[in-house]
Amino acid sequence: NKEHILAQKEVLTPIEYEHYVKHLFDIGEITKELYIELSS
C-alpha cells in the first residue's frame, strides 16, 4: 500500500526509490496515477 511504499523512501536512496516505484508500476502493483504521485 501507499504507506508501505512511502516508508521505503526513508530507507532507499532517491535513485533506488525511483527504480522501486517504477518496478511496482511495471508489474501492475500500482496505478499510473499513484506512480506519478509517488515519484513526484
Rank of each mutant, 00 (worst) to 15 (best):
N1P: 05
N1A: 03
N1D: 14
K2N: 06
K2R: 07
K2M: 14
E3M: 13
I5L: 07
I5K: 01
L6W: 05
L6A: 06
L6Q: 12
A7G: 14
A7L: 05
A7N: 09
A7S: 06
Q8G: 03
Q8R: 04
Q8W: 12
Q8E: 08
Q8M: 11
Q8A: 09
K9N: 05
E10I: 06
E10D: 14
V11E: 11
V11Y: 14
L12T: 03
L12S: 04
L12D: 01
L12Y: 08
T13S: 09
T13R: 05
T13N: 05
I15Q: 10
I15F: 13
I15N: 13
I15R: 07
E16Y: 04
E16R: 05
E16M: 05
E16W: 04
Y17T: 00
Y17P: 00
Y17A: 02
Y17R: 01
Y17Q: 01
Y17N: 01
E18S: 09
E18W: 09
E18H: 10
E18V: 10
E18N: 11
H19I: 15
H19M: 05
H19L: 14
H19Y: 07
H19F: 15
H19K: 11
Y20P: 00
Y20R: 01
Y20K: 02
V21Q: 00
V21T: 05
K22G: 08
K22P: 00
H23M: 08
H23S: 11
H23F: 12
H23P: 00
L24W: 04
L24M: 08
L24C: 02
L24D: 00
L24G: 01
F25N: 03
F25L: 12
F25H: 05
F25A: 06
F25E: 01
D26T: 10
D26Y: 13
D26N: 06
D26V: 12
I27S: 10
I27G: 09
I27H: 15
G28D: 05
G28F: 04
I30M: 06
I30K: 00
I30P: 00
I30F: 01
I30L: 07
I30T: 01
T31W: 04
T31K: 06
T31R: 03
E33K: 07
E33R: 04
L34C: 04
L34K: 04
Y35W: 15
Y35K: 01
Y35F: 14
Y35D: 00
I36T: 11
I36M: 15
I36S: 14
I36F: 06
I36H: 14
I36L: 12
E37T: 10
E37C: 03
L38V: 13
S39H: 03
S39G: 04
S39I: 02
S40P: 04
S40I: 14
S40K: 05
S40E: 14
